[in-house]
Every structure is written in C-alpha cells, then in structure tokens.
C-alpha cells in the first residue's frame, strides 16, 4: 500500500467521521442527502460481498466493516432518530436516485471482468459509487446555507477520490504496472463530478466567505 492510497482511505474515513460528528453533535442532518447516503449503503454492501470469502488484510477487513457500519448508522440517524429526522431537507432532496441503480446495474452486466455474481456486483458498486454523490450535489446547490461541516464532509469525500487517482498513477508506474480500467474510468468520472464543487469550495475558503453554490 502506498501513501496516496492510505491518505485516500483516511480522508474517506475522516469525511464519514465529520458527517457523523455533525449529526451526533448538532442533532441535525440539514444539507445532507439521504438518497446519497442510501446509495452508499448499497455501494458498500455490494462491493464487500467478499468480506467473508477472501481475506486481504486485517486493515481491509476492519475498514470494510467500518464503512458498512457507519453508512448504516448515518441512514438510521436520518430516517429514525426522532430529533435528527426532523431536520432532514426532504423537499429539497429531490434527485431520483432509483434511476441511477438500473443503468449502473445494466452497465455492470455489460462491462465487467468476470461474469460471476460477485464480480458483476463489485463492478456495479464501482459504477454506482461514481454517481452516488449526485443527489448530494443537487441538494447543496439548492441550499441557501451550507454549514461548514457539510461543506467539509463533501470536500473530504472528493479529496478521497482525488487521492485514489494519484494512488493508481503511483501503482501503475512504480508498483505493479497493471491496468485496472473499470476502477480507473469510474473513479475518474467520480472525481470529475467534484470539480465544480471544489472550485467554489476553494473560492469561498480564500475569500473567507460562506460556501454557496450557484444555482
């Protein structure tokens, strides 16, 4: 494992901690898209099916369990916690997330490495993760007031993807010289989706102003 990969995983973990902290400490999930969070539950469940069939390392196993557990915890908070659920911007979280599932699944059926249940679902999880942030970005665009924790959450989530791209470059040229087209292309698409957000995030940070995305 190289430093970019580790840094990527840590920013991913950190983004989740920031989100859980926001929800737990402020008892509010305003500005957070439940649809994106539900998609992440599906992403982790379909990607980590090999949790009990293939051991990579203790690090991988622990991280997989943490990602599955925290994604469930976030969805639970937003749906069932009696205070938190009242802060959910249901009317603004309008993205039809179910429409992302079918195209990703069809694409995974068409483009994969091995035609096995596990491999197709693993591929599906990569395609779905690439677009899972869309409901969140749409919600941010509709929000007048983006609080710092929400902005930071999305920032760290985007940073994780950017670091994974650097990890792939490093791996390809300096470690194993293997092409991994499916994770690469979906990862690049995913990173590109953050470009606009990053632009306004950095702009607001430079100007010491509150983050606001143009409609």
């Amino acid at each position: 494992m190289n430093l970019f990969r580790l840094a990527g995983d840590m920013t991913h973990l950190f983004s989740i901690i920031v989100l859980l902290l926001k929800i737990h400490a402020t008892k509010s999930c305003s500005g957070i898209s439940l649809k994106t969070q539900e998609l992440y539950v599906i992403v982790f469940l379909t990607r980590y099916l090999d949790l009990f069939t293939r051991f990579v390392s203790l690090y991988n196993t622990v991280m997989k369990i943490v990602f599955i557990g925290t994604s469930f915890a976030i969805v639970w908070y937003m749906r069932y916690h009696k205070v938190v659920k009242q802060t959910y911007n249901k009317d603004e979280d309008t993205f039809k997330h179910y429409f992302l599932l079918l195209p990703c699944f069809v694409l995974a059926l068409l483009l994969h490495n091995e035609f096995t249940t596990m491999d197709v679902l693993w591929t599906f999880s990569l395609y779905l993760e690439a677009v899972a942030i869309l409901p969140q970005l749409v919600l941010l665009q509709q929000s007048r007031n983006i609080d710092n924790l929400t902005g930071n959450y999305v920032f760290f989530l985007g940073a994780y993807r950017g670091l994974y791209v650097l990890n792939w470059i490093y791996r390809y040229f300096l470690q194993d010289h293997r092409a991994r087209w499916i994770p690469w292309i979906s990862g690049l698409v995913q990173t590109a989706l953050y470009a606009d957000f990053f632009y306004y995030y950095i702009l607001s940070w430079k100007k010491h102003e509150k983050l606001k995305l143009p409609a």
């Binding site: 994974y164 991994r180 499916i182 994770p183």
Partner: peptide
C-alpha cells in the same frame, strides 16, 4: 486477474 488485483482496494 485484473479483478483480483483491483479488489485489494476499498
């Protein structure tokens, strides 16, 4: 395979 190699990532 490509798949096996890529699956050590999260």
């Amino acid at each position: 395979t490509e798949t096996q190699a890529a699956k050590d990532e999260l």
